[in-house]
């Protein structure tokens, strides 16, 4: 019982940064913008969150600063692709490379600095319950925030007028423009939200997951988040499922190795990717639904005059 609880806690920790980055990117993509700079935005969020917290700003300010830093990176992307109509794929890739370098520069003074992790919730009585106690009542604030973010995005996209406008912009920007909606403004906001979420996802890595700053510490998680959005066919619930599946298989394969399961470790390292893609592709294999969910104008430059 206790080991199950510990394992599940590790799964939550592994899934949370992916969830933040993916749910942000989902909103960005729903507005018709493909931002491949998630990895770069996460890294900048990670270093800024760590720097602010380690300099005595406290975790709340640190996470807020990480969100702001992610948004600032996203603003650069928005300026280039939305206002100056640069190619989104190329700009996104450049944003990732820029983020890797920038975060390394900013983080030079913070390598090897120890930091206490985020405090975990402790409700007397409830947090001590076996299994579900620590799992439901004993996480850090960011884990709860990630669930709130998924629910809020799902509600926003399906139940609000603003969500409908965002989807309209993503489906057919020309039509949305003629109806009087500002495509530019909607996309700017969506890109900024994506940046803020990626920034918080990065901060989760440097403040809670492994409380330290190390160059390139995201180690590809931004790309996994990007893939999750596509394989989850742009649905928040499936992003949640995908992130936890990926985290779950990652932890399970480490446990299997530790328990001495006789499979090649290289194969085990491959399993999380394989399992996640397989499951998400299988549950989302209805071609008509994929077409319905995929934003039709994704990655295409929109110019109101054209």
């Amino acid at each position: 019982m206790e080991i199950l609880s510990l394992v599940l806690m590790s799964v939550v920790a592994a899934a949370t940064p992916l969830l933040f980055a993916a749910i942000g990117e989902l909103v960005t993509e729903k507005s018709g913008v493909l931002n491949l700079g998630v990895e770069g935005m996460m890294l900048v969020g990670a270093v800024v969150g760590f720097a602010v917290t380690a300099s005595g700003g406290g975790a709340v300010l640190g996470v807020s600063a990480a969100a702001a830093a992610g948004s600032a990176m996203a603003a650069l992307f928005a300026l280039l692709t939305l206002n100056l109509l640069a190619n989104q794929v190329a700009t996104g890739l450049a944003l990732t490379l820029f983020g890797i370098g920038l975060s390394a520069l900013v983080g030079r003074g913070f390598i090897g600095v120890p930091l206490d992790g985020l405090p975990h919730l402790a409700i007397p009585g409830l947090s001590d319950l076996p299994l579900i106690g620590p799992l439901i009542f004993g996480q850090d604030a960011l884990v709860y925030l990630s669930f709130v973010a998924v629910a809020a995005v799902a509600w926003f996209l399906t139940r609000t007028r603003a969500g409908l406008i965002l989807k309209a912009v993503g489906e057919n920007p020309a039509a949305a423009h003629r109806l009087g909606h500002s495509v530019l403004r909607v996309r700017w906001l969506a890109v900024l939200f994506g940046g803020a979420m990626a920034g918080i996802g990065g901060a989760y890595l440097s403040l809670a997951y492994t409380p330290l700053w190390a160059e390139n510490m995201t180690a590809g998680r931004g790309w996994i988040a990007l893939a999750l959005v596509v394989f989850a066919t742009w649905r928040p619930g499936r992003v949640l499922l995908g992130a936890y599946l990926f985290g779950g298989v990652t932890i399970a394969q480490l446990h299997a190795q530790s328990a001495g399961v006789a499979l090649p470790s290289q194969f085990m390292s491959m399993l999380p990717y394989l399992a996640t893609i397989l499951v998400l592709v299988l549950i989302s294999r209805d071609a008509a639904r994929i077409r319905l969910n995929a934003p039709a104008s994704i990655g295409k430059v929109f110019h109101p005059g054209g």
């Binding site: 510990l6 940064p17 190390a214 180690a219 932890i251």
Partner: peptide, 11 residues
């Protein structure tokens, strides 16, 4: 890979 090393340590 700090994250993965931490996961392995916890496992």
């Amino acid at each position: 890979d700090p994250g993965k090393e931490a996961d392995a340590a916890k496992a």
